[in-house]
Design a protein around this nucleic acid. Sequence first.
DNA 1: ATCTCATATGAAAAATAAATCATATAACTT
DNA 2: AAGTTATATGATTTATTTTTCATATGAGAT
Lengths: 98, 98
Amino acid sequence: MKNKSYNFFTHLANPTKFKIIMALREKELSVTEIITELKEEQSKISHNLKSLTQCHIVEVKRVGKKRIYELNKDTILPMIELVKKHARKYCLGKCHKD
Amino acid sequence: MKNKSYNFFTHLANPTKFKIIMALREKELSVTEIITELKEEQSKISHNLKSLTQCHIVEVKRVGKKRIYELNKDTILPMIELVKKHARKYCLGKCHKD
DNA sequence: ATCTCATATGAAAAATAAATCATATAACTT
DNA sequence: AAGTTATATGATTTATTTTTCATATGAGAT
């Protein structure tokens, strides 16, 4: 029985996906809003949102012609906290800070 | 102030590094023991151990001509638990299982 | 029914990361 | 001090991921 948990971390290990996640921490956003906030290309954001959705790191809902993306906070927020704690302990503000 | 936390996840997102981490969950191991257990090449393991060490995901100590690697359980174990929980909830044994 | 806005998708290109190979170092043994 | 074992390192090759570009789809407005 093979361990594939590392797949999950793939998403958090990508700067674009990570930025999207961070943007969604405060409130849910439409694709256009994410694009505007991150100043990134539309298809780039869409591709990244797709895999985040497949992994259930975010959830989508349709509202008219928009798609609203929401963060799965249960999993992601504590995970980010763990890294922050790790960084405080080991990195002295140098590596994984935010 | 830029967010670089995603760097941390880079390690967990890599199958070789992830396997090393898993092997170190039970007990600390020398490089040779890791090589034997994972059936991987020596330099591959060494390269991977180097970056894991730099990120403080593992710690090294010298014992004679051996180097013993130990997992930083405080950060890693709860993180793995979060993914497992996530997988149980969303993946129904299909994606991130181990 | 056509137009426009919002978003998705596929394939190719570009960028990044990881593995390999050859070699180096460091400690113990003889 | 020469040999051997254990591990590290650098440079190149190879593999994997990510971005880009062009185009498609789908919903609401006209």
